[in-house]
Simulated scan of single mutants.
Amino acid sequence: MFRMPPEWAPHERTWMAWPVPNTTFGPGELARSRRAWAAVARAVRRFEPVTMVVPPGGTEEARALLGPEVELVERRLDDAWMRDIGPTFVTDGTRLAAVDWVFNGWGAQEWASWTHDAAIAREVAALAGVPVHPSPLTNEGGGIHVDGEGTVLLTETVQLGPERNPGWTRERVEAEIHARLGTTKAIWLRRGLTADYPPHGYGTLGHVDIVAAFAAPGVIVAHTQPDPTHPDHGPCQENVAFLRAQTDARGRPVEVVEVPAPTAVRTEDGGWADYSYINHYLCNGAVILCAFDDPRDEEAAAVFRALHPGREVVLVDARTLFAGGGGIHCVTQQQPAPAWLRP
């Protein structure tokens, strides 16, 4: 049986995709975005190999920012969010495989294009030398989070949204998720953060990886918004209360660790900020954590140091990433070591 390992399991490498000109990365933002992506890649490369997918002819320019240690491969791209366009790697303990979800531009949003990105999961699987497990479910890697012991976090507005899977029931979605990931229990959050929905920008319609994530079996880090003027204040309180009432696939009560949002509640353009420390990435020996030049950056770092003793917490400025619609977790995708096995 193939299973998706938890993010803290050993990795063989991290996959990323290079920003290309599109609606998200306009002429004024492309250079800045590439510097932001490069900062994440260089941080991760300190701890494990990184392969960056770059557009045809883009190797020389990317190399100048990424340095010599990041592997570059050329493939056609529409966007740069490898968590969502790339495959979800699974293992049976000896072999790796790649789940290829249907990708339709985060619910066929009007600003998105995905002709090339819909094929990137298969391209990455081929580069990794692993077989593809195609799924009929429209889904993205940012819409799932697993504990490695049978539990998966989902969001109702993603997998059950008519923009992705019209006509699919909760039972059908769960059956497909469990079959692909080797999970047995789904915990459904009602929705994501306000800025993740129209008309606020380049959102995903509610990805879970900005709201809640497993830190260990039975332990979930959850985004909270302390400012009562922010529209996420109430929904975050609801999420925490809901998660604390849950049990995982092994019947354990869920422990919830609240991680307050940065103090900034507005973005530079005046919109509601969805800045979140939950959108972090666990690589071999490190936590790559979003930073926002905010007083709460170090508070969040202390939380993650306590949760992941023995891992170095590396803060990387994520404000440019969030301006494009995501964070550090959204731009990375782990390729696990195949020998991992669920206890």
Rank of each mutant, 00 (worst) to 15 (best):
M1E: 00
M4W: 05
P6E: 10
A9G: 07
H11D: 08
W15V: 02
M16H: 02
W18K: 02
P19V: 07
P21M: 03
P21L: 01
T23M: 12
G28C: 05
L30S: 03
L30P: 05
L30I: 15
W37F: 13
A38H: 06
A39P: 00
R42E: 11
R46W: 08
R46F: 08
F47D: 09
F47Q: 02
V50T: 10
T51C: 14
M52K: 00
V53H: 08
A62M: 02
P68K: 11
L72N: 07
V73Y: 11
E74R: 06
E74Y: 05
R75Y: 12
D78Y: 02
D79Q: 09
I85Y: 06
T91G: 03
T94D: 14
V99A: 00
A118Q: 15
I120F: 04
A126L: 12
L127C: 04
P131L: 10
P134T: 14
P136A: 09
G141I: 04
G141C: 04
G142K: 01
D147Y: 04
E149N: 12
G150P: 02
T155W: 02
T157Q: 02
L160Q: 04
P162Q: 10
E163M: 10
E163P: 07
P166L: 06
P166A: 02
R170N: 08
E171R: 14
V173N: 04
V173P: 02
V173M: 01
I177C: 04
R180T: 10
T184M: 03
K185T: 14
W188E: 05
G192C: 06
H200Y: 15
Y202P: 03
G203K: 00
G206I: 02
V208K: 02
V208Y: 03
P228K: 00
D232I: 01
G234R: 14
A245C: 09
A245E: 14
V254Y: 02
P260W: 13
P262Q: 08
R266K: 15
E268W: 09
D274C: 09
D274M: 10
Y275K: 01
I278A: 07
N279S: 11
H280Q: 13
N284K: 11
A286M: 08
A286C: 06
L289H: 09
A291N: 10
F292S: 12
D293C: 07
R296C: 12
D297W: 08
D297Y: 00
D297E: 11
E299N: 00
E299Q: 10
E299A: 11
A300Q: 00
A300Y: 03
A302Y: 03
A302T: 13
L307K: 03
H308Q: 06
R311L: 07
D317S: 10
A318P: 01
G327L: 05
G327W: 01
I328P: 03
C330W: 07
T332H: 12
Q334C: 07
A337E: 13
A339Q: 15
W340Y: 15
